[in-house]
Amino acid sequence: MAFKRPDGRKLEEIRPMMAKIGVVPNADGSAIFSFGKTVAIAAVYGPRLLHPQHMQDPKSAVLRVNYDLLSFSVSDRKKPGPSRRSQEISKVTEWALSPALDLKEFPNTVIDVQIYILQANASTRVAGINAASMALAQAGIPMKDLVCAVSVGKMDKDLVLDVNDEEEHFEDGEGATDMATARLANSDKWTLLQLDGKIQPDLYPKALSLADKAFAKIYEVQKKALKSVMEEEK
């Protein structure tokens, strides 16, 4: 018997997505992205001269990502300030975004990407990447492509798209496996791969092909949001 999703979704169904550009007027680029009740906001500042000087790279801009949960975005209040988890996510998010960017055009500068989760209902890092990707595009940073991100879950033996809070804590059978993935929207280039749980090696590529199906939809949502803001600016 197939896994029955607590919110009634089909196995391959993503929660309703929302994307909005230009939500932080001070930033060079900004966006909100949500998967259902998970809401992420991202702002981009830069490229600007990097201080201290010894951190500068004469060949390229430095991409610097900060991801964190707002203290009230989770049930048990999150103590403000970086945690081991948020530091790790910040770093892997940096690597998820950097393959899409042409950083060589801005030597000695830094591009800061700030990602915060306003409301958390699982899959926060992938929501953050989707928001950051749009914010970078709005900031006019030269990009090869947008980055699309989604989580794939394995509930006992079944694969599902876009894991929510309840599913994250599923314990029956082989339990819950959470797989965060990101890829350039239009090429076979995986830029984020994370996994926690239990999955057989031959099943993992199938989880990735499930993510592939989601990326087309996420890409459309991102593109639509970016287009609408461009039309407004005209």
């Binding site: 690597w95 950097s98 393959p99 797989m179 984020l192 791969l193 996994l195 926690d196 057989q200 990735l208």
Partner: peptide
Amino acid sequence: KEHMIHSAQKGMDAHLSTDDITEMMKNLP
């Protein structure tokens, strides 16, 4: 009983292709 992946994390700037991953899944066990 069977091989099971418990954790994974990609690091560093380079991307990985689906072929890379298939190749790894073949050799990992």
